[in-house]
């Protein structure tokens, strides 16, 4: 038991940023846009969040700054791919490189300067309780991620706007001919994805390591992208997937720290597991071949109205 609770707490910490970033990417992909720049947007969000926390000490403002920074960077992507019809894959990769470089530049003056971690949302009585901290010991972003799973599921499944978003991702030309603004919907979805990635990035200095380090998101943005496919574009599966990936990452940490049985498998292999799992799932999905794979039919295809 005393082993289990720290593991769960670590797991939640590892899973939350991935989940938030993946939810944003899911919405963008549902509208038909493949944004591979999640890692870059997360890093920009991370440095923005770090700087805001460093100067104001207000973690909510820091999250907000992260969201704005992520959204701003995603607008570059949106302009290039949606307005100028640039290739989404290439632009997404470029965005990651750009975000990595920009955050390193902006973060250079702040290395080795600590900030305060975000405090738990609930009062100490619950949050510091040896048992109840499993449920109440986390700060706002953890609960936010859960709310967003439900909210995005509801939005996509139950609201008219969500239906339009799915329609745009499914058949852009039909959506256009009915009279929906394909580009407008996709801009909104990409910017939402950027904001979520920014929040996810800001979680790193605010929740995990209270200082700035270059490339501190350590590839989690890529895991978020993989997770969307792994979850076959379903928010609830995304939740399960994020925690499964989070668990594997926690195992990796314990393995690195020489955690007994876990060390039997080298930590590098643990680190590779999420990607291997994604490949396995992709293979399984393509074997099944029916429509239930749920991939948006227009994913990654630029939209150019014919008239």
């Amino acid at each position: 038991m005393e082993m289990l609770i720290p593991i769960i707490v670590t797991l939640v910490g590892a899973a939350t940023p991935i989940l938030i970033a993946a939810l944003g990417e899911l919405v963008a992909e549902k509208s038909g846009v493949l944004n591979l720049g999640v890692e870059g947007m997360m890093l920009v969000g991370a440095i923005a969040g770090f700087v805001a926390q460093f100067y104001t000490g207000n973690p909510y403002l820091a999250l907000l700054c992260g969201a704005f920074a992520g959204a701003a960077v995603s607008l570059i992507f949106a302009f290039l791919t949606l307005s100028l019809s640039a290739n989404q894959t290439a632009t997404g990769l470029a965005l990651t490189i750009f975000g990595t470089g920009l955050s390193a530049l902006a973060g250079a003056p702040y290395s080795a300067k600590p900030i305060a971690l975000m405090q738990p949302l609930f009062p100490d009585m619950l949050a510091r309780d040896p048992f109840w901290r499993v449920f109440f010991g986390y700060s706002f972003p953890v609960y936010f991620s859960f709310i967003m799973v439900a909210a995005i599921w509801w939005f996509l499944k139950r609201t008219r706007s969500g239906l339009i978003l799915r329609a745009v991702g499914e058949n852009d030309h039909s959506a256009h001919s009915i009279g929906y603004s394909v580009t407008g919907v996709r801009y909104a979805a990409v910017v939402f994805g950027g904001a979520m990635a920014g929040i996810a990035g800001a979680c790193f200095p605010l929740l995990l390591t209270p200082q700035w380090a270059e490339s501190m998101t350590a590839g989690r943005g890529w895991i978020a992208v993989a997770l969307v496919v792994f979850a076959s574009w379903r928010p609830l599966r995304l939740l399960a997937g994020a925690y499964l990936f989070g668990l594997v990452m926690t195992m990796e940490l314990y393995a690195k720290a020489g955690g007994g049985v876990l060390a039997v498998i080298p930590s590098e292999l643990w680190a590779a597991l999420p990607y291997l799992a994604t490949i396995v799932v992709l293979v399984l999905i393509s074997i099944r071949r029916d429509a239930s794979t749920n991939a948006p039919a227009c994913l990654g295809k630029p939209f150019m109205p014919t008239n």
């Binding site: 239906l163 799915r166 329609a167 499914e170 058949n171 030309h173 039909s174 959506a175 001919s177 009915i178 429509a291 749920n294 948006p296 039919a297």
Partner: peptide, 11 residues
Amino acid sequence: FSLFEALTVLE
């Protein structure tokens, strides 16, 4: 037809 294959008739 400007239909969306993955969606239902109702949608």
